[in-house]
Write a protein that binds this DNA or RNA. Structure first.
Lengths: 67, 67
DNA sequence: GGGGTTTGTAACATATAATTGACATTAAGT
DNA sequence: ACTTAATGTCAATTATATGTTACAAACCCC
């Protein structure tokens, strides 16, 4: 589950904690997503996208079939 | 949680059951997602996208902030 | 080298996505 | 009208995303 959340977060000068707070999840959740260690729900992906002014494809798309 | 899964599935001439089988989930899961009644995981969204030759933005993006 | 901030993990609890099995409804065909 | 396939939905269970609390490693700054 690779993604570009970390990069986009840093572009906005936010810590994991700040991003988590603004989205309304815990820091651990953001951390695990950034590390690719799990599989967030669509609603959470969308919340992250809106907060970081990116689309789903920007942050979460990859051509490969596998995770 | 509106999305375009149903439309894309029909373009490919698949039933909910067939799509579910190819992705490896149950028909109920596909049904509920199409009806917008829940919040699939990213991995499942990606599986649907690849099967239907669409991107995340094609099937699951909407500009609105809310679900 | 000590103190604060950020990040990476871990164990356990809770909410909910997803499965299983079953039944009702709708749509299409004959 | 009858049959069959497809869809909508429900109750009960299982798997897993997320929360909570806590602690350690890494990085700055003084």
């Amino acid at each position: 589950m690779k993604n570009n959340v970390k990069l986009a977060r840093i572009e906005h000068d936010l810590t994991q904690q700040q991003l988590a707070d603004r989205i309304g999840v815990t820091r651990q959740t953001i951390n695990l997503i950034e590390k690719g260690k799990y599989n967030p729900t669509l609603k959470l992906c969308l919340a992250i996208c809106h907060m970081l002014k990116k689309t789903l494809d920007d942050l979460f798309w990859s051509e490969e079939e596998n995770e």
